[in-house]
C-alpha cells in the first residue's frame, strides 16, 4: 500500500533525533489521533542548516517527517515555507488517501518550528500556526487538501 520511497524513508528515516540548542522547535498532532511530530531546526543567517525530528505515528507519519526534514535542510526560511504537504507527498511518490493527513502534519510541524523560531527572535510572523496543537481540521486546511484530490 505504500510506495517504495515511503517504505525507504520509514525503514531508514533521515534526521531522526533532537537538536540540543535548536533555534526553533515545533510539535503538532496528538496521541488521541495516533500521530505526534516534533521538529527541531537550527537556523543560521536565515538558512536552515540542520533539521531533526521525532515522531510517534504510523509508517506514513515517520516517512513524511523524514522527507520533510530532507526537503528543508539548506533552504531559506521562505523556501522552507513553500514545502507544503503536496510537495512532501510528491517527493514520496504519493500516499494512500487515508494517510494524506500525515503529510499535512509534516507541513504543520515545519510551520510550527518556524513560528517558534520567529517568536524566540521577536520576528514578525503571520499567526496562522500560532498555538496550533495539531490537525484538528478547524482551520479548514485538511478539508481543502481533501477537496484538491489529496493526491
Amino acid at each position: 500500500m505504500y510506495s517504495e520511497k515511503v517504505m525507504d524513508h520509514f525503514m531508514n528515516p533521515r534526521n531522526v533525533g533532537e537538536i540540543e540548542d535548536a533555534d526553533g522547535v515545533g510539535q503538532v498532532g496528538n496521541a488521541k489521533c495516533g500521530d505526534i511530530m516534533k521538529m527541531y531546526l537550527k537556523i543560521e543567517d536565515g538558512i536552515i542548516v540542520d533539521a531533526k525530528f521525532k515522531t510517534f505515528g504510523c509508517g506514513a507519519a515517520v516517512a513524511t517527517s523524514s522527507m520533510a526534514t530532507e526537503l528543508i535542510k539548506g533552504k531559506t526560511i521562505k523556501e522552507a515555507e513553500m514545502v507544503t504537504n503536496k510537495v512532501v507527498m510528491e517527493a514520496l511518490d504519493g500516499l494512500p488517501p487515508a494517510k494524506v493527513h500525515c503529510s499535512v502534519l509534516a507541513e504543520e510541524a515545519i510551520a510550527a518550528a518556524l513560528q517558534d523560531y520567529r517568536a524566540r527572535h521577536g520576528l514578525d510572523s503571520d499567526s496562522e500556526y500560532a498555538g496550533c496543537p495539531g490537525c484538528c481540521g478547524g482551520c479548514g486546511r485538511l478539508e481543502q487538501q481533501n477537496r484538491n484530490g489529496g493526491e
Partner: peptide, 20 residues
C-alpha cells in the same frame, strides 16, 4: 502500524488495533 511494518520486514505477520 509502525510496529507491524517493521515486524513484516522481519517476516513476522501480525495485527494491531491502532487507528492506522
Amino acid at each position: 502500524e509502525s510496529l507491524l511494518l517493521m515486524l513484516d520486514m522481519k517476516g513476522i505477520k501480525a495485527s494491531s488495533g491502532s487507528a492506522c
